[in-house]
Simulated scan of single mutants.
Amino acid sequence: MTAWIVLPVSLSAFSITGIWIVYAMAVMNHHVCPVENWSYNVTCTEELPRPGFPKTCCTIQDIPLISKCGSFPPESCLFSLIGNVGAFMVVMVCFLRYAQVIEHSHHCWVNTSALVSGCTNAVGLVMVGNFQVDHAKSLHYVGAGVAFPAGLLFVCLQCVLTYRVAVTTLDYWMAHFRVALALGAMISLVFSGIFFIHESFVLQHAAAICEWVFTVDILVFYGTFTYEFGTVSRDTMMAGLQQGEHASGVIMGPGSRGSTLGGASKGLKSPGGSSTSTHLNCTPESIAML
Rank of each mutant, 00 (worst) to 15 (best):
N37Y: 02
N111H: 08
A114S: 08
G18W: 06
I66Q: 14
T56I: 14
W109M: 08
L96D: 12
N29A: 11
V32H: 02
L115I: 01
V93C: 15
S80A: 15
C58I: 03
V35L: 15
F72D: 12
I21K: 11
C108P: 00
G70L: 07
Q100A: 05
T59S: 08
T112F: 11
N111Q: 15
S113H: 03
I21P: 09
Q100D: 08
V91L: 05
L96P: 08
H107R: 02
V91P: 00
M92V: 14
T112W: 10
R50V: 10
W109A: 13
T45H: 05
D62C: 01
F95M: 05
F53L: 12
H106L: 04
S76A: 09
M25E: 12
E36Y: 14
T112L: 13
G118I: 02
G18T: 10
V91M: 11
P74D: 09
H104N: 11
V101D: 03
Q100R: 04
P51N: 01
F88A: 15
K68T: 14
V91E: 08
A87W: 09
K68L: 11
P34M: 09
W109E: 13
T59M: 06
R50M: 09
R97E: 03
S76P: 07
S39F: 04
C57F: 05
F79I: 13
W38P: 02
F53W: 09
V101A: 01
V32C: 00
T59F: 02
A26G: 07
C94N: 07
S117K: 01
V35G: 08
L78P: 00
W38G: 01
V22I: 09
G52C: 09
V27F: 01
C44Y: 02
M28G: 15
C108H: 10
S39G: 02
S76N: 13
I21C: 13
G18V: 06
C108W: 00
C44L: 05
S67F: 13
C57T: 02
E75T: 03
F88K: 06
I21A: 10
C69S: 14
E103Q: 14
K68P: 00
V35K: 04
E46C: 05
N84R: 07
I82L: 15
Y98R: 00
V110K: 03
V27W: 02
M92F: 13
E47T: 04
I82G: 04
E36Q: 12
S113R: 01
H106C: 11
C108T: 07
A26P: 07
P51I: 05
P34A: 09
F72G: 00
C44Q: 03
W38I: 05
